[in-house]
Simulated scan of single mutants.
Amino acid sequence: MNLFNPYYYAVKLRNWLYDRGILKSYALDVPVVCVGNLSVGGSGKTSLVRFISNALSEKFHVAVLLRGYKRKTKGLLVASYRGEVKAGWEEVGDEAYMLSKVLKNSSVLVCEDRVLGGNFAIKELEAEVIILDDGFQHRRLKPDLSIVLLKEGDLKDRLLPFGRLREPLSALKRADAVVLSYQDVKEWDLTLEKPVFKLYRTNWRIVSADGKIVDHKDKTFVAFSALGDNGQFFQTLVKLGIKVEKFLSFPDHYHYKNFVLKKEKLYLTTLKDFFKLKPSENLFYLDFDLRVDGLLGFIINNIRAGSSAGRATDS
């Protein structure tokens, strides 16, 4: 089918130009860890960025760099500095705002020009490690380590516009490590000639607007989300035995401008969606921890190896 897909040839040409140095990639003066995927959303990327950022921030000042998808602004904007929120979600985008709210020791910034944003983070924010969120296809900024999340469904999916893949599976050759998502929903495996890690979501909890963990046994919710793959969220609620009277599915990055909470109902959503709504006593979000055995050690070892080998900026 790729033979009849113009998008396939555009992706192939772009990668060919970067592989041969015709289009330039630029390195930064600190380690850059890229966290990306092959499909259009729904792979757990933002959760993994949160997981890695929290771990690395114990030793480094981490700056998370995003494009700021569907924000109302342009250019470079600091979403948070060392945990202090500097902008609203409409200014920096919902993912950047969510990360700025939950990452207490890291900085978060958005910029369409990732090279510009990365250099700003180093010079002005004194970042020691850059985490490039959703940067696997953004090849202008050269990562020191590329981590790609993969869903089991990606193995049988097709390229845009016929499917949800942004690149074919062969693009995994550029990755330094692959993380197999949603093992808690269904365990699956994949053998590759590079490190492969498995992502489990654990310690599920329902949290109220004031940050308290609540017991859901006697509660029934209206569940809603606006993710790249809403089905994963709804499937998780069913598996956890959370009572849901109605599921509401919205497009990814939905703005919720005309969404009204009925006082007599209880609402349950994701962390990203929760922060786009005004706090309410009948609004809750589902949160969790991640377990990815071996990944953090792999990242830290590679960061140290890259630092000891010296760094040079490609200009």
Rank of each mutant, 00 (worst) to 15 (best):
F197I: 04
K151W: 00
G117W: 00
V148K: 03
E128A: 05
F197V: 06
I122R: 04
P168N: 12
V179S: 10
Q183S: 09
L149D: 02
P195S: 09
S181P: 10
T202I: 14
L165E: 02
G117T: 02
V115K: 03
K123P: 00
D134K: 04
N203S: 15
P168V: 08
D189T: 12
H138C: 00
L145D: 10
D134W: 03
V196H: 05
S146K: 12
V148R: 06
L192W: 14
N119W: 02
L145E: 12
L155Q: 10
A175S: 10
D134P: 01
P168C: 11
K186Q: 11
I130V: 04
A121W: 12
E167Y: 10
R166E: 08
D144G: 15
K173D: 08
Y200G: 01
P143E: 13
S170G: 01
E128F: 11
W204E: 05
T202P: 01
R166V: 06
V196C: 08
R140G: 08
V115T: 05
V178S: 04
V129M: 01
V115Q: 01
N203F: 10
E128M: 09
A177R: 04
L160E: 02
Q183F: 10
D154G: 05
S146Q: 13
R164D: 11
G117L: 03
L132F: 15
K198P: 07
D133E: 06
L149Y: 05
F136A: 04
L159C: 04
V178R: 05
L132Y: 15
L155E: 09
V185I: 15
D157T: 11
K151H: 13
R174W: 08
Y200I: 02
L155T: 12
E126C: 13
Y200F: 14
R158A: 14
N119R: 15
S181K: 12
L172S: 04
P195Q: 06
G153C: 03
I147W: 02
R205I: 09
R205G: 07
N119M: 15
S146C: 06
T191I: 13
I131T: 03
P195Y: 07
S170Y: 00
V115I: 14
A177W: 02
S170L: 02
R140T: 15
D157P: 10
K123L: 12
K123D: 14
R158C: 08
Y182R: 13
K142W: 09
I147P: 00
V179C: 06
A175P: 03
K123S: 12
L172T: 05
D134H: 05
P168H: 13
F197H: 06
D133R: 02
R205L: 07
A177H: 05
G117Y: 00
I147A: 11
Y200C: 02
L190P: 13
F120T: 06
Q137A: 10
L192I: 12
L169G: 01
F136S: 03
K186F: 05
S146Y: 03
R166D: 12
S146A: 14
H138L: 01
H138T: 01
G163Q: 09
S181H: 08
A127G: 00
D134G: 00
N119I: 06
F120S: 03
G135A: 05
R114C: 09
K198Q: 11
